[in-house]
Amino acid sequence: MAALATILEKTDPMLPQPYVVRQVGKETPDTFGLTLEPEDGASGTAFRPGQFSMLWVFGVGELPISISGDPSDSGRLVYTVRSVGKATNALVSREVGDGIGVRGPYGTGWPVEEARGRDVIIVAGGIGLAPLRPVIYEVLNNRKDYGRLVLLYGARSPRDVLYRKELAAWARHRETQVLTTVDYGGLSWKGHVGVVTTLFKYARLQPARSVAMLCGPEIMMRFVTRELEVHGLSRDNIYVSMERNMKCAVGFCGHCQYGPHFICKDGPVFPYERIRPLLEKYEL
C-alpha cells in the first residue's frame, strides 16, 4: 500500500493511461461487458475488489466505473457498463482495438481480507452486482480461506439478470448458495419473483460468523440492512458501496461529498455503521 501510494503521488492523478479494448459484449439489452488491456502491453493494474476506474472516451468524457473482473487476473481490466447516457453509450460503442483512457484504480475496497475465515453474504441489486463480482472471484479462487458464500441477487426482470451463466456456475461450488430474484417475472422465468429482501427466507445464514457486502440502489440497501439486522448481523459486519457524482476521483473536485465523506477516497465501500445516520437523510 505504501509503495502504491508513493507511485501515485509522483504521477499526475489527472492523466489517463492509454488502454485498448480487447473485448466488448452484450450482457443484457442495456448492459455491456468491456475488457481493457494496457496499450503498451505492460503488466496492467492491480486492484482490490470494490475499487473503480475513471474511464475516458476520446472527445466525449470520463466516467467512474467499478471494476467487475477477477482481481487475480491483473493483466486486464474488466468492466460491466450500463448504457444510460451519452458517455456510457460512447463507452459501450467502442470496438475491439479502440483506445480508452484509464485512471485509477481508486477508492476503498470490500473487506475481503477481514472476511477470511468467515461466511460472506453478498446482496446485490441490478448493476450493483458488478462491483461485487470481484469478491465472488476472490472467495471462489481462495475457497478454503472463506466460510459459506451466500449471494442474494435482485434484478428488475429476467432479461436484466447479469452474468447468467456464471450465476449457475457459482451455485455449483461447495458451500455456496446463489439465489436470484426479479421484481417482475414472466412465465418462462423459473426463479424467484419479489424484491431482493424476500430472498432472506431461503438464505442459509450464520449471522454470528458472517460479513455482509451490499451494493445496489440506496433504497434497496436500506431495506436490506434492516433485514440483515433482523437476522442478527451486527452493523459493524455490514458494508455498503455508495455512488455520487464524481469528476476527479482523488478528493479534489468536491462533487462526491456525502456528509463528511468523500465517496471517491473514503469510499465507495463504507462500513454501514459509519454512514448509517446519513442513509436516511433526504438531499444530503
Binding site: V84, A155, R156, Y184, G194, V195, T197, G216, P217, I219
Partner: peptide
C-alpha cells in the same frame, strides 16, 4: 406490503 412498495419503486429502472 413493504416488498410491494419496493417493487413499485422499480429501483433498478433506467431513468
Amino acid at each position: 406490503l413493504e416488498a410491494t412498495s419496493l417493487q413499485l419503486l422499480d429501483v433498478y429502472a433506467a431513468r
